[in-house]
Simulated scan of single mutants.
Amino acid sequence: MEPGNETQISEFLLLGLSKKIELQTLIFGLFLSMYLITVIGNLLLILAVSSDPHLHTPMYFFLSNLSFVDVCFTSTTIPKMLKNIRTKNKAITYEGCITQIHFFLLFATMEIFLLTVMAYDRFVAICHPLRYTIIMNPRVCGLLALMSWMMSCLSVTSSLLETLTVLRLPFCTNMKIPHFFCDLLEVLKLTCSDTLINNVVVYFGAIVLGVFPLFWIFFSYSLIFSSILRISSARGKYKAFYTCGSHLFVISLFYSTSLGVYLSSAVTSSSRTILVASVMYTVVTPMLNPFIYSLRIRDMKGTLGRLLSRVPSFNDGIVVGLS
């Protein structure tokens, strides 16, 4: 960054997805719809899992945790973006920006750990089916979910130390962030001092929290595919692939975009490319998750169908009572 006058700043300006005024209404409507679909879809999935005893299994337990994290993850960024468009005020306070960075990293890390735990669950289910209920008992599932939260909190505590170092960095007079939320890498670009150490820490954290879990997921699925290939019946192979298909699709979508953001930022200065990829893993993936799982899993489709069928019957009862 070119040197400039250092200043004690109190807020940043989030430039959003587009500077064109005529597109703001379209962007507001689109992202409001996507946010509502995300919240309603994931909460409906959580309700389905909690209300149906047939879905009280390890896979659905982790899936409901993932849905909760998706709601929190999206709520960290989108409401503020919608408010800025509605009020035509792009400002976010300095403290608000640091807080947003912290919770964004927390829920993103939790999503990574949950996807890793879900890969382990599928590994046990397919590679050790006879011992599945013994290995993945409720106590173990609770401990795995608790460990995911604890590891996320510990890793984000270290990332919070990174954001606290940002507080001590001198900033230039240009406080415009070419993003729709406070991204740590974009905030670091606004400083006037050397951020080499900060960037090294950020990329090291991305490797540890992103690549290592991804390696474990690949290792789990290599064993899963090896077991599937040993299944003699075609129907058995199809059933095994069908069970893993939803999880693999979600992993591919989340990792390809999230890791793409951090890796591409190291080799390109194109904010537009990073912005599009960020929309994919912060908005699109959490919105699609409940649809991907519910449409591919027969038990989930049946439960959601029964839940939705109660809505008109309840309304009909009210009409009859009033008439």
Rank of each mutant, 00 (worst) to 15 (best):
Q100I: 00
N89W: 10
T76V: 13
T74M: 12
I98K: 04
H102W: 05
F107M: 03
Y120D: 01
F123G: 04
S64R: 14
N89F: 12
K88F: 00
M59G: 15
K83T: 14
M110H: 13
D121T: 05
H54Y: 14
V117K: 13
M136W: 01
P58W: 09
R122D: 03
G96K: 09
Y94I: 08
R131P: 01
T99A: 14
S50N: 10
L130Y: 12
V69C: 09
L115M: 10
S50G: 14
L66K: 01
E111M: 14
C127E: 05
R86V: 06
K88R: 08
R86S: 09
P58Q: 06
N84V: 09
Y132V: 07
H56C: 10
N89R: 08
D121F: 04
L130S: 08
K83Q: 11
Y94H: 12
F104R: 06
D121P: 01
R86D: 09
P129K: 07
N65K: 13
T87V: 08
E111I: 15
H128V: 03
A125C: 06
V49H: 12
S75E: 04
A48P: 03
T87Y: 09
D121A: 01
V124F: 00
I98R: 02
P53N: 09
I101A: 11
F113G: 02
F103N: 01
I78M: 06
P53R: 08
F104E: 04
L66W: 02
T133D: 15
M136K: 05
I126E: 07
R131Q: 11
F113Y: 11
G96H: 02
K90I: 13
F68Q: 10
V69D: 10
I92R: 13
F61Q: 03
C72D: 05
K83W: 15
I126H: 04
I85S: 08
H102P: 03
Y132E: 05
R122F: 01
Y120S: 01
M59I: 12
K83F: 15
A48D: 01
F107H: 03
L63W: 02
P53E: 12
T93R: 07
T87I: 08
